[in-house]
Write a protein that binds this DNA or RNA. Structure first.
Lengths: 351, 351
DNA sequence: CTGTTAGCGCTTTCAA
DNA sequence: TTGAAAGCGCTAACAG
């Protein structure tokens, strides 16, 4: 059962040897031509280029990066949920900067699961990525993120940090944003403000809850603990949580929702309640303030203010820090922390 | 200025030789242990595993895939705009299926630019991707997508097709969806229906316009050509186009918008007009029907119906077809075309 | 200016 | 059960 070597060859991708043979030169000359090297007679150069084009030759980057001194040109990116438009924007920012530095990105979804994240990273390292950008998952261990586990491959965190792992990190000003939003609600006279957030095991969840509490402390108003609901990871559970709050004998007059999943769930619950009530006994209006913007925020049927921030910029900055270490001379500065600013947007949109 | 070879070694990633040395065996034995091969004494196996763990060894997949018969485990994906939530969902579907087949995805943004797309694909091929999934850009040539240019690497199209390139393709039922939506509007009695769409050079744009025209033809009602606006690629330009339609002396009574960018732009324009008018002279209501769903569609302040479809499924199906060719025995069936169904959703949501 | 040699990290083949 | 040799595709270093 022997394979015809001619067929075999035609199925395989052409190599530098195939080009050399066709152009009647040595593989070395081909290599020189392809890397734009000097010291090749014009005539030969042309012959080689022609031969390469003829057989559709493409240099094998994997073989190339095997040589000492060469690098893979790959950056590994793990995201907790690419389907979240926020992270999609972030990925775009990362990809832009990577392209500017002639690198490509390998992308994996960790699905908020540390062991999946660890697997992805192990795989990426096996593929010789030059660096990693990670949105760390909210729960599970972090041994796979230690310098020892990464074998010296630079890592940057985006959007969230991990305690005990001291690497370049880009966050948004979670505490400040939550503080600002909550302070505004308090200054508007609200004293019973609900909090809707995701699990406190998630870094941003924790930080935004802290801002919420800090604002209360600063104004000397106690947090209405019975109105604090955490653990809603998706729109559906957020809607349920909000519906429960609305059904309380003494419901909140304002709500701070700590991410866009919770904001959207809250809006849905409020709209559903309105519909149920009809025009007969209109509900008292609920003042809603959310962290994160989203596409339709300014057209919300419920009056809404949001703490907005720039996901693409977040991705860009994380990537830039990584490339500082890879290409720049910043390879051994201590880990840096960037906190991107947030800004307030209200409906109807100010302009 | 010679480099200390010991330091040099420690900086480089450990190789199979380092493990071999530490475990006092030959590299071949290490290789056998690592690939779970049989015929290794238990004691040696243990020693090797220990040594590998000690020095943080990771098998170099790139070197591995150099050997004949081995494959890179990479799939290249180009998307016209990852920041569009629709494509983010699609990417997730692709990634899921790729992971099920133990592959990773290299992702690039083509930004609706064929030459950028060609560059990405060339790069991916250089990295030895086993297959490609492409959302083809709307304009520019397509020579880079021919079988010759790809050198036999399987390609699948997602969401759009390209004339003259006969490969596995997953589309959604653009024509049928547009036909359905337009027919409903006509059957509601509308005779002056506006069309908002993106460039007709974009595959989906063309198909959805065709469905719009077909519906008119089937009902024997002429298309109101002065109300057909194409070329809006983003929310901003769609809003402008819609505002122009509203300002017409004889504005449309209904609008079919051919994608979610245009739908959102239309909603914004209608809301802005409402606000400008105030309660004094309310605008005549506009009936809006859009192609594509989006997160907030059911909370639209303007009554809205949409032609919804499943982006993640689109990605999954494209990837599944690709892996049929890579791993299955479907490697040489003729190119297949799948058209995913669409379904109508209206606000307020039916349930 | 061009070619030969050697070796990047790994594994298939063959021999011990 | 283990190891040595050879070679995957490419290129730095050295000859010529």
């Amino acid at each position: 059962m022997s394979v015809d070597p001619a067929r075999e060859r035609s199925a395989a991708r052409p190599t530098i040897h195939d080009v050399a043979e066709r152009a009647q030169v040595s593989p070395m000359t081909v290599s020189r031509v392809l890397s734009g090297g000097p010291n090749v007679r014009a005539e030969l150069r042309e012959r080689v280029e022609q031969a390469a084009a003829d057989i559709g030759y493409r240099r094998n980057e994997n073989a190339r990066s095997l040589r000492p001194g060469h690098r893979s040109g790959l950056i590994g990116v793990t995201i907790t949920n690419i389907a979240n438009p926020y992270y999609a924007e972030m990925q775009r920012g990362i990809e832009e900067v990577a392209a500017e530095h002639s690198r490509r990105i390998l992308v994996g979804n960790s699905n908020e699961d540390a062991s999946l994240e660890a697997q992805l990273i192990a795989d990426f390292l096996g593929r010789q990525v030059e660096g990693l950008i990670v949105v760390p998952s909210g729960s599970g261990g972090s041994r796979h993120l230690t310098a020892a586990a990464l074998g010296g491959v630079p890592l940057a965190f985006a959007s969230r940090a991990v305690e005990g792992i001291d690497v370049d990190t880009v966050l948004i000003d979670d505490v400040g944003g939550a503080l600002e939003a909550t302070t505004r609600l308090l200054d508007e006279g609200h004293e019973r403000i609900a909090f809707l957030g995701n699990r406190v095991s998630v870094f941003t969840g924790r930080r935004r809850l802290r801002g919420f509490r800090d604002a209360h402390a600063a104004r000397g108003i106690p947090v209405a603990e019975e109105l604090v609901r955490v653990g809603q990871q998706d729109v559906g559970s957020a809607e349920v949580a909000m519906a429960e709050l609305l059904a309380l004998p003494h419901p909140p007059t304002a709500v701070f929702s700590a991410n866009n999943r919770n904001t959207i769930g809250a809006i849905r619950a409020i709209e559903a309640a309105k519909r149920r009530q009809g025009d007969a006994s209109p509900l008292p209006p609920i003042r809603l303030f959310g962290f994160d913007s989203f596409e339709f925020a300014d057209l919300s049927p419920v009056p809404l203010s949001v703490i907005a921030h720039d996901a693409r910029e977040l991705g860009r900055r994380a990537a830039e820090m990584l490339f500082d270490r890879l290409d720049g001379d910043e390879s051994d500065v201590p880990a840096r922390l960037i906190e991107l600013p947030v800004y307030v947007q209200s409906t109807p949109s100010p302009r």
